[in-house]
């Protein structure tokens, strides 16, 4: 009887452990990436992104890089709206 109980607890824990390990995490596995530097060229005129009255539009041809309106964040500020 005692052994039986112990077995039951163990199998329960075993199952729980398996489930915990095999459960897929939201967003998938976290991949370790190195720090990197990127630049977004303007698809219209090919110029690099430069600051001119903001960052949301191309400084040379006015192409809109993004349509969202930026709000104050840690590094991005409202002033970065073109």
């Amino acid at each position: 009887m005692g052994e039986d109980k112990e077995k039951r607890t163990l199998t329960y824990l075993e199952r729980l452990k398996q489930k915990a390990i095999s459960q897929e995490n939201y967003g998938g596995e976290v991949k370790a990436e190195e720090a990197k530097m990127e630049v977004r060229d303007c698809p219209e005129c090919g110029a690099g992104r430069a600051f001119r009255q903001g960052l949301t539009a191309c400084a040379y041809c006015g192409f809109k890089f993004m349509n969202t309106r930026l709000t104050d964040g840690v590094h991005i500020k409202k002033e970065n709206n073109s």
């Binding site: 976290v30 991949k31 370790a32 990436e33 190195e34 720090a35 990197k36 530097m37 990127e38 630049v39 977004r40 690099g48 992104r49 430069a50 600051f51 960052l55």
Partner: peptide
């Protein structure tokens, strides 16, 4: 040019 710097994980 505005480069986007992404820190490591």
């Amino acid at each position: 040019t505005q480069n986007t710097f992404t820190p490591s994980t």
